[in-house]
Amino acid sequence: MSISIKQLFGRKPKSSSIAKQRLKLVITQDRLDVDDRVMTRLHHELAEVLAKYFEFSANSVKMNLKQEGNSYILVADFPYTKFHDLNVRQ
């Protein structure tokens, strides 16, 4: 977030903070031993299920693993445009 605010003011983010951010992400994946293919599959399967309920564009979806203390958190952003009313559809 802080990076995008700085970008608004026309300042380039420090490369050291970019490095730290990228490292944190990749190391979390390394530690969990998460395979890229597994993440991609999870991504697709989640999208498949959620598409039944929401309308969203596939390329707006973001999935990340985060570490907080000793636990890992899977954060998935599915910015949706419309909620399907399942009752109406039937």
């Binding site: 420090k14 490369s15 050291s16 903070s17 490095a19 730290k20 490292l23 944190k24 190391i27």
Partner: peptide, 16 residues
Amino acid sequence: LVGNGSMMDQADVLDI
């Protein structure tokens, strides 16, 4: 390099 933001400092490295 740390001073001008081009290198991670010790706090960054230890945090990771």
